[in-house]
Nucleic acid binder design. Sequence first.
DNA 1: TTGTATGCGTTATCAT
DNA 2: ATGATAACGCATACAA
Lengths: 339, 339
Amino acid sequence: MASIKDVAELAGVSKATVSRVLNNTGQIKDATRARVNMAMEKLNYRPSPLAKSLATSSSNTVGLIVTSYRGSFFSELMAEVQEMMDSQEKFLLVGRGKRSRQSEQEAILKLMDMCCDGLILHTRNMYDEDLLDLAQKSTPFVILDREVKGLENRSVVYEHAEAGRLAVEHLIANGHRKIACLAGPRSRMTAELRYAGYVQALQDHGIEVDEGLVAEADYDRVGGREAMAEIYQRHPDVTAVYSCSEEMCVGAFDFFREHNISVPDDISIVSFDSVSICTMLTPQVTTVHFPIKEMAVEAAQVLVSLMSGEQDIQPKRFAPELRLRDSVRRLSVSNNNAV
Amino acid sequence: MASIKDVAELAGVSKATVSRVLNNTGQIKDATRARVNMAMEKLNYRPSPLAKSLATSSSNTVGLIVTSYRGSFFSELMAEVQEMMDSQEKFLLVGRGKRSRQSEQEAILKLMDMCCDGLILHTRNMYDEDLLDLAQKSTPFVILDREVKGLENRSVVYEHAEAGRLAVEHLIANGHRKIACLAGPRSRMTAELRYAGYVQALQDHGIEVDEGLVAEADYDRVGGREAMAEIYQRHPDVTAVYSCSEEMCVGAFDFFREHNISVPDDISIVSFDSVSICTMLTPQVTTVHFPIKEMAVEAAQVLVSLMSGEQDIQPKRFAPELRLRDSVRRLSVSNNNAV
DNA sequence: TTGTATGCGTTATCAT
DNA sequence: ATGATAACGCATACAA
């Protein structure tokens, strides 16, 4: 608990001088620098980040805000951001906006109170206007996986709709017409976009959208199983499913296992995927990859640029990519009872 | 950016009074309290946690230290701890000790510098003596998944060896004798214990330990696949495998898939598991469950008790539990070419 | 019930 | 090249 004062006394200099050697600022005689360093050593001195932050209104810290701490998706995101920040000697603070607009805003304020030098926002419930308001404050931030008009240069985005279209297109190209959709919660923009991609692909091929083939779940495993069950009950004749999250895909497999439905013989499936859970299933499932790691790194890099004062940044946009595996069967024309 | 001073002025009181209403301390006339609250409201006042921490040497914060941010194991741990701390209105700070003793110590010091009120340590490389030293300081902490002599009342432990024994015992009970072991890194105590359980079970049944059936990997998926390949090459006649981590189990399944080896027809497998990855595989694999979530909650609760000054706490001990599923086949006696 | 004054551990401005 | 000193925003012991 030695403070800068103790060091100063032991070294026979003033606090100011100690502060200078600490921060390598100003000109210091080698001899005194040595004395100061000795004193620090001897006292086992550790500067207080709290005091420093209070004095400078900065903290060598960046904040990451997410909606949940659960699952590999989050941990990979966090890991990538921290690793990027390691090179900047910055510490990562993470906060969680539960499921409400207000909660997310509070999390942000909390991190700002702690004087984070920058923020990465992977939030889901705040309004665009909230973000616009936030941009008025001085703390730089970048928005992960969301495009806000007016904040394009701070948004790291992914083409969810195009990704969904790609996935469903693949199913259609393989002769499928009765395609189920395991959709995410309507309230989430990205879920809406993924669903839009489904609709788009069907329309492109003149296939009517049948609401009975669509079921909504909370992006999670049990939700996926239940949604799959629901659809199967209504449409035992589905030949393929498009899953909007990897967890729901696992849930679908749970259902298939329980009912002895074989993939891809009895049913084909394509899923979104970000932490490769889909490659653990048997058979490995064909996916559209959502590159959360790369996006996290990009967000971190953009933030670093922002914090160092750069202005005109054009964050990379991430395009979807289809990863062909073994969960899609080509439907022979005879089986094809479509349009 | 309004400070307590601004509030005081606007309310026409002293800073001390504002501080009092802020912390609900002392006696305050309702009228003044109201004025102060109004002023806070009007100024959009937010107390600075930094200044508060500096003044009080506490922060309403607890620290969690882990070795890696990757994977569901970590995120579930973090999520559980945060949820427990929510009820205490405490914020969670998380730090990462990379892979060295020193790095872990630094992470701890860093969190202490931030004035964490308590620490949960899920570290792997620090020495027992380091922990003993740490106990001299005033910051309370609890050790997760490690038993340190002299710190039993701060250790939340799991019986890894017994868990391993249980798993292998199950294989043996089903007639297996040639049992491979996908072991974790020797350097990790828990890996060592899990391996010890393997040895114990074999010895209990008079089965000789064959080093050729054992391969070490880094607890991860690719490591598991490689280890499995290695063993298979040496011993194509293995009938069962004991996997010391769920990720390695996934890796083993990768190998099986590549070589058309069927579970449990061609080979049986039992694995450690903590975030239920093993239930995503086909067939679902029989596991010994490592209850990370429950242990995280227990650790958090013990820490809360510690922080509130309680002394004689006896943390719960966690016993292993076998979860029977579909990855183990009973070997008929005729197939049994063992001792 | 409220105010004054001091300290927490830094940085930073202004002298010297 | 170095020292004195005033912030930073809060808590708290002591007065009143």
